[in-house]
Design a protein around this nucleic acid. Sequence first.
DNA 1: GAGGAAGCCATTTTT
DNA 2: TGGCTTCCTC
Length: 816
Amino acid sequence: MQKRNLEDNALNEQELKDMLVEGLNPIQKEAVLHKNGPLLILAGAGSGKTRVITHRISYLVKCCGIWPSEILAITFTNKAANEMKERVEKMLGFSSRGIWIGTFHSMMLRILRQHAERIGFETNFTILDIDDQQRLLKEILAELKIDDDLLNVRTVQNKISSAKNRMLSCEDLANDAEYDNLRKQVAEVYRNYQLALKRGNSMDFDDILVNAVKLLQNNQDVLDAYQTRFKHILVDEYQDTNHVQYLIVKLLSAKHKNICVVGDDDQSIYSFRGANIENIFNFEKDFKRSKVIKLEQNYRSTKTILGAANAVIKQNDGRTDKRLWTEEVTGDPISFYLADNQYEEARYVASEIKRLTERRTDSILAGDIGILYRVNALSRNLEFALREQGIKYNIYGGLRFYDRKEIRDFLAYMRVIFSDTDELAIIRIINVPKRGIGDLTVERLRNIAGREGIPLMQVLVNADQFPELSRATNSIREFVGIIAELRQMMLDNNLSFPEFAREIQERSGLLQDLVEQKDDGSEQALNRIENLKEILSDSIEYTERIKYEIEQFKLLDENLDQAEVPELAQDAQDIYDEDLSLTTLTGGFLEQTALFSDLDQSEAENTVRLMAIHSAKGLEFDAVFIVGMEESVFPGYRSFNSPHEMEEERRLAYVGITRAKRYLHLTATQSRLLYGQTKYNIVSRFLSEIPDQYIVEIGGSRHSNLSHDSGVRVFGGKNGPSSIPDQRKYSSSGPGSKSKILGSFGLRNKPETNLKQKNQLDISSIKTGQSLNHNKFGTGIVERIDFVASDAILTMNFSGQIKRMMASSAPLEKID
DNA sequence: GAGGAAGCCATTTTT
DNA sequence: TGGCTTCCTC
């Protein structure tokens, strides 16, 4: 296959070229055909960037004499990587096999495995999942006797992660923290945490990148090899890369300087986890003699939707200069519905969906509809209403498959069987299902291991030698027996991998335990059993995929002149040589599940999709509903005191709006019950940023008492192709005009809307300098009051410790 | 060691 | 509100 491509190449380059850019606009073509040197593609929403990337890769291979193995393409998610792989494969056929397409993490992991010893790890180092990470941190916090109120697990975890994202070591943090006690403690935890990881020959997710940078920086020969190999590097979603990722790109591209990044600063929505929007702004400075191409034609949305999106994002400062436009029709106006409460909002959405999917002409498939929200907590009412209407839906986000307890437990068993030095996994499952090995015993086990300087498993195996374990020896023996038996099974290599997985579920007792719970009437248990079955099908899929890949490599290998492409041959060899034993498969599967946490669900089904706006990035829907368009929900209250965060919220709004192709529905409520409290928020500022011409309010006079009965007001129904009947035609002065509702809601932005709390803290009476009592932090002084929406953010000083809290919800009381 | 009651605290998420 | 942790009791 490789040879044939070369012949193609020689035969008719021009023809090939034409074929590769067919159907692309001139600017897209330019991006595809760019030859050498750094290239920044500023790709607006819906501008066809994925197409450009895949075509570009094909062009490099087919017309520029670049070997697939000389290309590194990095995407944001595994899903995106798979899609890209598929598309490139379609265009290139076999020859795409050698391309490195994947996320930063998977690509760097691949590199790290090859050279682990260079940075002091064994090749089979393990990767900690978030659970392990938290457990470990918790232990360390307890060991260091750090007060939980001062520094909780989540906070340190974030701080350590963000330090790693910026390539800061614990020493860096410590040096930085001379006068800051809290930071000193974080540095201390960080230090112990790294030591523990090292001891366990393991890394966390961030370490994969950090260690890759260290490897490349400190080993010239390794760096040389990869720099030479990767003649072209492409990075998608560049606006969401962090500093470490930037360093990786910088290092790897330094030799050939063929670095092509694609991104859109307006869609940068991950700064909360370290993404650095400056990376995209600085590209031209960072990569000398770079070329910038702007994809500004949008192929997705109507003029109306795009106009609204542009108007909203325009409110942000410091954007790269670009103007998204479209040749699409004007389309229907965006609708806005203000509901009384969240139930009514949900019912409105459900009935609108029914209408869209059931109308006689131009109906829309449920699968082409998305319901988006700022926070996952908003999905509950929607679910209820959809079920009520018999609309099929799928919820994305929230608890992911691989984060579920039963899946983690199962994988922990697998980990222990695979490597009995995986102590975190041992501790996770030693008493799951319950077999009488409680916290005290676990504590003793660890003490013994520490005292004797032997691995935990060793202690378990020799439990009867330690009198303090006597009460638990039988249970321990049982546990050790299960592991040993399964381990032997793996080494015997008589089962297929899925069969083996099944044995683990059964012999561990996990399945049995759940079956018993189910028999007691637990619905959750039933669900968990389903999930365990689901992971068995994953194991089948995994096995088949590996077999297929090996086939492919064999084929490729036969056609390959080793001297010509040594790296590709090496890749082929690596997999070719694998014995495909149960042990190998187990290791591979574990690695994949550690990294590929979203093997996405059945997407083919025709269902409405519900998700947080973050998860919708990269997707598109014919009709989009964005619910919860209220101040303090969206934008979230946390962004009120930070212009930066507010801009990110706005970008999020922009992402949400631009997901819609034809119909966009925005909804808000007058009163919302969220987190057990009813709030009266005003309508989101993002709504008022959309010019009147693009939007129309449904319902109109909201305040008549009659509006309680039906709840939902839907006009039109099935009589006509347009979803917007005449009554709703927008005019700036009509009863349903947006200026009216926004005006009337401006009035609501008054203290009267405050919901009084139990302790009757009257926001309007608080003054700076006043002392208030907090039920946790004690007496504090109000240093500052920032009024936001119908609430206020108080900056409180509790004897030197500064805290910010919402006046309405913080447990504060006046002092008499 | 296990199970129940009470208390606590709430973005966004991929790897 | 509700999911999760911690504390308390048997």
